[in-house]
């Protein structure tokens, strides 16, 4: 049998300490009174107040959320379509090229993706701004979405859909009432992944954004290059809090959805 040894306990303790202590320090120092990030001078929330008055950060945050929402939605639609093609597409002209184009962006260094998209936008004369960032983000995140959704579709029992069509559903109805509910958890986690990838991206956004549109990571990056500041700590803390709440909620609700689905499937079999 497997035994949880003291060595295991030590590795877990040190491992998680390594993963979490840097973030905890970051959060603690965001409540520091002093401008000097490294010297503790008492508890204060003043940096949060200053952050909320910093127009540049607020504007960037708004652009970032807008870009992430639109691009992840486009990416989810395209990525789900691509997943269908990968799993159920059968043979068609250029299938190898298609799957190559799905997998290549996953391993492509961001600097290259960013550079190539910028050169494209310049050669077709598209002005850089929100639109170009959205196009860039939708392109690389659709590949992640399609991987997530297709891994769920591989395990999907196609006969359920066929049964629905035998019972008189049109293909579209069968898709909407049978397939979609089953792959929905994967589609939702695909959307969330696309959303966070977009929220998080610095390199591709730096290449594809123009002076009219600055995203939060670009703003943070240029501030951080000048050194550590308590305002950035405060901003980071807010982002960490949002992500943590989001991930926990999503994982709890998908877990519930999956167990409900399993129960339904068992009931249906009886």
């Amino acid at each position: 049998m497997r035994k949880f040894t003291w060595f295991n306990a030590v590795s877990l303790t040190f491992g998680f300490a390594f993963l979490y202590i840097p973030m905890i320090i970051l959060i603690v120092y965001s409540f520091n009174e002093s401008k000097l990030v490294t010297v503790w001078a008492g508890f204060s929330t003043k940096w949060y107040g200053e952050l909320l008055q910093n127009e540049a950060f607020l504007d960037a945050a708004w652009v970032t959320v807008k870009v992430a929402t639109i691009s992840s939605t486009i990416a989810t639609v395209l990525g789900t379509m691509a997943a269908f093609v990968l799993v159920r597409g059968g043979r068609f002209f250029g299938r190898t090229l298609f799957s190559g184009m799905i997998y290549a962006p996953l391993v492509m260094p961001e600097v290259i993706t960013g550079l190539s998209l910028l050169l494209l936008f310049i050669s077709v004369g598209l002005d850089r701004g929100v639109t170009t960032i959205v196009l860039a983000h939708a392109t690389f995140s659709m590949c992640f979405v399609s991987v997530v959704v297709s891994s769920r579709m591989v395990t999907f029992d196609k006969s359920l859909e066929e049964a629905a069509m035998d019972l008189g559903c049109t293909p579209w109805d069968a898709f909407r009432s049978v397939t979609l509910p089953i792959i929905a958890p994967a589609v939702i986690s695909g959307w969330l992944l696309a959303f966070t990838l977009s929220l998080d991206d610095l390199v591709i956004a730096s290449f594809t954004s123009g002076p009219a549109a600055t995203t939060l990571p670009i703003k943070i990056f240029s501030a951080v290059r000048l050194g550590v500041s308590p305002e950035i700590n405060a901003l980071s803390t807010i982002i960490i809090a949002f992500v943590t709440i989001g991930v926990l909620t999503a994982s709890i609700s998908t877990k519930r959805a999956i167990s409900r689905q399993k129960r339904d499937e068992q009931m249906a079999q009886q």
Partner: peptide, 20 residues
């Protein structure tokens, strides 16, 4: 969950944390 959570948290912020 504890392993995945940092992965969802901003990459830039996790790098920034080490500067301090």
């Amino acid at each position: 969950m504890l392993v995945i959570l940092p992965f969802w948290t901003s990459f830039l912020i996790r790098v920034y944390a080490w500067i301090g």
